[in-house]
Nucleic acid binder design. Structure first.
Length: 645
RNA sequence: GCCAACGUAGCUCAGCAGGUAGAGCAGCUCACUCGUAAUGAGCAGGUCACCGGUUCAAUUCCGGUCGUUGGCUCCA
């Protein structure tokens, strides 16, 4: 090559900090990163070259932009975990050659791989697989990408008897596919991947589960293995610690320990029994909820648990929600159904008189207990039950009032959730379901648009959940993030053109004619059962004073202070403070320990000194030291925390 | 509903190559009267989820049912 064209052998790489790096043409991404820094080169997992995420072995042949992803980025994690799933698949194929591989993606907090295996994996298999993975990891097998034609790929995977891969290939409409090899393992995969198996240093296989091929219950059930992996030991350990912490906070465990609720076989799965302390908690939330609703312009209404078939026919539930409803009961020859939703009753109230445009908007709310058939396998503590109390509400308004009503309800909702200690939210716009929906397309379009505009006005940002709407309309769902960073959906704001049609709702407008109002269903906490389950885990059972079923436990030091302690309890109880005493003939250390286990905000010790001074020795939750406080001061301390904010 | 695991005292869990069960905690009684995370002793507590089969004998083995758990599908 002559001197004068040498310049064309170099290309320019633009970095995110807008600096330019000049490198040799056909350099690998890995080499280029080496020019940025050795540390980054070592930590790099994949990179984005001109908006395409590529392997580090990717050769760059023209001027490009480049950004590097380490494990700390979402992209880096995804590639890392995806490679971990391949490592696991390779180990499984080695140990169980007869197994067919299917797919193995990264998920939010780890990865899985689905295998078709005749006899399911047993827990001991996980250890063997982990050991094999360790071996392959230490061999540092290079992970290489190849591109080949679809036909060649089909031939390849047919020869390997990987029928699932062949099935996937047959459905691809591209001509060229990529495969990745590591040692003797080959998988069809878009990639990218880490450069070699040594990257996947620290991992743990967590669980085995059945999963349908392609997520369709009509298909064969495959064997799924879940795992996590990290580039360093500390991260793995802290991840496992979070899993352990989640176990400790499990609302089913705490619900039992703190005597909040039970779900019993003889009563029925998915049916919650609220014990005194749990009912206390639930009642506190309910009365707070009612107060807030009155303050925010709502009226409370109250409706029955069952209704005649006619009602459910009119509402469309018998046609569209039947699989979630329980069989009817016969009352004097008429079919009655237990309610799966409250709305038909609310609309029946609306129908009972005629409304002027001046009376709108109506905001009606009810803590209505509904019953839905849930398949046995989906029940889960308080988070998924068959009977639950919705914090339901319906807004009926004129079309011109609609945007403001949606704004108001979103605002109300976020305020409410913040009061319960949730700070992070995600908003979703759920659009028309592909199958099973009512109402014409225009209605769907305009309703969806109205919700979307309201979402935009929040300024929080939102995602679209395509096809996630209810059969009767599009909706906004709000997800909260709890203390452990887990997301939960509670709130839902659902547009409903359909129900007002079906019930023929009208109001008299200024023109003296009947017009159709708009209707919104909304639940802020969702289901009280689920919300309480989430709250228990969010607070790890250590409820703030205003929610704590027991706010203070008094412990007497000796027999002589029994009367004094009982006198205090009476006083506190009269003030509406939730106080208990432990007057047992036990050592104070024992009773303190017991009270700490109950996670109450305050423990008050009453001994000789306190009885003489009319004080209490106050020990706050989480603190080891205590301090003497006057009874009156203690009362005002607790009283000042009786309401949130 | 599907795949897998599990179901023993109020709770957490041992145990049983088949001979009707044991611990700790909680409970009760007694003694101790105690100053901030377990005082000591004693007592009581179980149709080993339920139904059926094999067996001289089943908590143990086999089958079914119910329930729970981890997922899948579905969802507040």
């Amino acid at each position: 090559m002559s001197e004068d064209i040498q310049s064309t052998e170099f290309i320019q790489i633009g970095l995110p900090d807008s600096s330019i790096l000049t490198v040799k043409k056909e350099s690998t991404v890995y080499e280029i990163i080496g020019n940025i820094g050795k540390g980054l080169q070592k930590a790099a997992i994949c990179a984005k070259v001109n908006d395409r995420i590529v392997d580090l072995s990717h050769r760059v042949s023209a001027d490009s932009s480049l950004s590097v992803f380490t494990f700390d980025s979402r992209e880096g994690k995804e590639v890392f975990w995806h490679s971990a799933s391949h490592l696991m698949a390779q180990a499984v194929k080695k140990l169980f050659p007869e197994v067919k591989v299917t797919i193995g993606p990264a998920i939010d907090d780890g990865f899985y791989y689905d295998f078709d295996k005749k006899s399911p994996f047993v827990p001991e298999d996980l250890e063997r697989i982990e050991a094999e993975m360790k071996k392959i990891q230490s061999e540092a097998l290079e992970i290489t990408r190849e591109e080949l034609s679809k036909d060649d790929a089909i031939k390849l995977f047919s020869s390997l008897n990987e029928t699932y891969k062949v099935e996937l290939l047959n459905e691809l409409d591209t001509d060229k596919v990529s495969i990745y090899r590591q040692g003797d393992f080959v998988d069809m995969c878009r990639g990218p991947h880490v450069p070699d198996t040594s990257y996947i240093k620290f991992f743990k296989l967590l669980s085995i589960a059945g999963a349908y091929w392609r997520g369709d219950e009509k298909n064969k059930m495959l064997q799924r293995i879940y795992g996590v992996a990290f580039p360093d030991q500390k991260a793995l350990k802290s991840h496992l610690a979070i899993l352990e912490e989640a176990k400790q906070r499990d609302h089913r465990k705490l619900g039992k320990e703190l005597e909040l609720f039970s779900i019993q076989e003889d009563v029925g799965p998915g049916l919650v029994l609220w014990h005194p302390k749990g009912a206390r908690l639930k009642n506190i939330i309910e009365s707070f909820w009612k107060d807030e609703h009155y303050k925010n312009g709502y009226e409370m209404i109250s409706t029955p648990h069952i209704g005649r078939a006619n009602l459910w026919q009119t509402s469309g539930h018998l046609d569209f929600y039947n699989e979630n409803m329980y069989s009817p009961m016969d009352i004097e020859g008429q079919d009655y159904y237990v309610k799966p939703m409250n709305c038909p009753f609310h609309l029946a109230i609306y129908k009972s008189k005629s409304f002027s445009y001046r009376e709108l908007p109506l905001r009606w709310a009810e803590l209505g207990t509904v019953y839905r058939y849930e398949r046995s396998g989906v029940l889960h503590g308080l988070l998924r039950v068959r009977g639950f109390t919705q914090d339901d509400g319906h807004l009926i308004c004129r079309p011109d009032q609609m945007p403001e009503e949606i704004d108001r309800v979103i605002d109300f909702c976020l305020k409410m959730l913040k009061i319960f200690g949730f700070e992070k939210f995600k908003l979703y716009l759920a659009t028309k379901p592909a199958e099973k929906s009512v109402g014409d397309q225009n209605m769907w379009d305009s309703a969806t648009q109205a919700l979307e505009e309201a979402l935009k006005r929040t300024g929080i940002g939102y995602e679209v959940d395509e096809g996630g709407g209810a059969f009767y309309g599009p909706k906004i769902d709000i997800k909260i993030t709890d203390a452990l960073g887990r997301e939960w959906q509670c709130s839902t704001i659902q547009f409903d053109f359909n129900m007002s049609e079906r019930f023929d709702l009208t109001y008299i407008a200024q023109d003296g004619k009947k017009h159709r109002p708009y209707m919104i269903h909304r639940a802020l906490l969702g289901s009280l059962e689920r919300f309480l389950g989430i709250l228990i885990e969010h607070y790890a059972g250590k409820f703030p004073v205003w929610l704590a079923p027991v706010q203070i436990i008094f412990i007497n030091v000796g027999e002589e202070q029994k009367d004094f302690t009982e006198h205090i309890i009476d006083k506190f109880t009269n003030m509406g403070i939730r106080a208990e005493s432990d007057l047992r003939d036990e050592t104070i250390g024992y009773k303190i320990r017991d009270a700490i286990g109950k996670k109450v905000p305050y423990i008050g010790v009453t001994g000789k000194r306190e009885a003489e001074n009319n004080t209490v020795s106050l020990r706050k939750r989480g603190e080891k030291d205590s301090s003497e406080i006057k009874i009156e001061d203690l009362i005002s301390l607790i009283m000042s925390d009786m309401r949130p904010e």
